[in-house]
């Protein structure tokens, strides 16, 4: 195996470990940190099922953001929606054979997924243009958007500019997944794209991108409003 392939195999595994391990570490860490007091943001359902139902609605609609800032909602919701299609578009590279519904939606997923740069540029511009957002935006906030943008552009270039060998890429990815790595496709645009994804994998769990999992654990939105009925004990409350 070439040195390049060895390098990519190694760094891919490291990336996977850091990404999945980091995600688990962070999210389990959140889950295990005590909630000394019940702090649901009311009005809130009194049952776990009610909370779950409400959370599904909130997450699918970005309700709070919709109520808070419609213009940011457009960008934020657009971004996440496009990312779903990007994910769908990429699933075919990791599944063999590709199950039929997935195969059928590929053209549509490509169509929507190709819009990725739009919400990213829009959100970046919004950060720079609105005085309140300029005020709160750090290099790291732009970095997250820029990283996604570069990943998106390099990915799109594989499709539309420097045609990449999808079969070779799929073999490479499946090889990694099945723990029998094969040679990495020596396609410069692919290597750029893939390297950037690895950067994202390393970065994700230890940055604000952890919000993707954190949204499911937030005490204010995920606790039920059941104080009158269910006794809540503070593990360090000393009683």
């Amino acid at each position: 195996m070439s040195a390049l392939s060895l390098f990519y195999a190694g760094i891919s595994y490291a990336g996977a470990v850091v990404f999945f391990g980091g995600l688990a570490y962070k999210l389990i860490g959140y889950a295990l940190t005590p909630s000394p007091l019940k702090i649901p943001l009311t009005p809130q359902p009194a049952s776990a099922a009610g909370v779950a139902w409400k959370a599904v609605g909130s997450i699918l609609s970005f309700r709070a953001l919709w109520n808070g800032d419609r213009w940011t909602w457009v960008g934020g919701y657009g971004l996440h929606l496009v990312l779903v299609f990007v994910f769908i578009r990429h699933l075919r590279l990791f599944l063999s054979p590709v199950p039929w519904p997935l195969a059928d939606v590929q053209p549509f997923a490509l169509l929507i997924g190709a819009l990725l740069p739009l919400p990213l540029v829009y959100l970046m511009a919004r950060r720079a243009a609105v005085d309140r957002y300029r005020q709160i935006s750090s290099g790291a906030d732009y970095f997250a958007l820029a990283l996604l943008l570069l990943i998106g552009l390099s990915g799109l270039s594989l499709k539309f500019l420097f045609h990449a060998d999808v079969v070779g890429i799929k073999e490479f990815l499946l090889g990694l997944m099945l723990l029998s790595p094969v040679e990495v496709p020596e396609h410069p645009a692919f290597l750029v794209h893939f390297s950037l994804v690895l950067v994202l994998g390393f970065y994700f769990p230890f940055s604000k991108l952890i919000h993707a999992g954190g949204v499911l654990l937030s005490p204010t939105t995920m606790q039920a409003d059941d104080a009158p009925d269910v006794r809540h004990v503070n593990p360090w409350g000393g009683q």
Binding site: G68, I136, D141, K208, I210, S218
Partner: peptide
């Protein structure tokens, strides 16, 4: 840790 600074 989870704030994305959306500005809402």
């Amino acid at each position: 840790e989870v704030c994305v600074k959306c500005g809402s």
